[in-house]
């Protein structure tokens, strides 16, 4: 298929996730709970970020067999992670037929440079902490951006901070005179087209989701009110006391993020959230 059509099909796919929750799962049983609880996709990985933090060592792409089992077990899209810059792990996941690849900082980086995502048919999501990183990843071919937050901590502060930073930076670009845009593009090493797009439209050319630290329905709704279009929940669900209830409540909170009455019901009686750490 032609490259620009592939791009449109993958950007269209991202529309389907909006207002939804993408949940980290480490086995088939968790994937089924996620699907039943209203997840719009699952992220298949061997260890959730909280365990990666605790256990240390090198975190790599998951065993293809485990990913394959999850792909067979659920009808919702299955995403999987590769190390930053590890284009062979990406080739393997594409061959496996996963629906989305997360080139993720949660795993141990394999290179100082990111993957050239244009050569792949499968869409990629990448993390960012500011506008420059977002635009760099988009120039490399990412079809979806998520703020990184602080994965595995259950602490929302970084996710909030990064979402605000990106919005502030977008606003400052919008205020620039058109002739000042080229210097931004040069300084950030991104194409002038991208900077012009931000200047004109006031938002990223791809969707922006939130990740890293969401542990409660209120956290999820907070990120949606701050402008995220969907959320990734990593350790927050399956490290909580009652994963199924927690998953359902976070799904509800993302759809009804604007409604405090509904949110108060969703936040009630969930048992303990993931214990968390200060990141």
């Amino acid at each position: 298929m032609h490259h620009t059509i592939q791009k449109k099909v993958n950007l269209g796919f991202v529309e389907m996730f909006k207002g939804g929750v993408i949940m980290d799962v480490v086995n088939v049983a968790q994937a089924k709970i996620a699907e039943k609880s209203g997840a719009v996709a699952v992220m298949a990985l061997e260890r959730v970020p909280a365990d990666i933090r605790k256990m240390g060592g090198i975190a790599r792409m998951s065993d293809p067999q485990m990913i394959q089992e999850i792909m067979t077990a659920v009808t919702i899209p299955v995403m999987a992670k590769v190390r930053i810059g590890h284009f062979v792990e990406a080739q393997i996941l594409e061959a496996l037929g996963v629906d989305f690849i997360d080139e993720s900082e949660v795993l141990t980086p394999a290179d100082d440079y990111h993957i050239d995502k244009h050569v792949f048919k499968v869409p990629f999501v990448c993390g960012c902490t500011n506008l420059r990183e977002a635009l760099r990843r988009i120039s490399e071919g990412a079809r979806l951006i998520r703020t990184k937050g602080e994965a595995g901590t259950g602490n929302i502060i970084q996710a909030v901070h990064q979402m605000r930073v990106i919005q502030k930076e977008i606003q400052s670009i919008q205020k620039l005179k058109p002739e000042a845009l080229l210097s931004v593009a040069q300084k950030w090493d991104v194409s002038i087209d991208l900077v012009q797009y931000i200047h004109q439209k006031g938002h990223l050319p791809v969707a922006n989701f939130s990740a890293g630290g969401i542990a409660t329905p209120a956290d999820a709704a907070l990120m949606m009110q701050l402008g995220a279009q969907a959320v990734f929940v990593g350790s927050g669900i399956f490290k909580s006391e009652n994963p199924e209830k927690c998953a359902e409540a976070i799904v509800g909170a993302v759809s009804y993020y604007h409604d405090p009455v509904i949110l108060s019901k969703l936040a009630t009686g969930l048992g303990g959230a993931m214990p968390g750490v200060i990141g």
Partner: peptide
């Protein structure tokens, strides 16, 4: 709209 029918059906029942 399109999306994930499992998620939508879950939400429609819950709410």
């Amino acid at each position: 709209p399109g999306g994930e029918s499992t998620a939508m059906i879950f939400l429609m029942h819950k709410f």
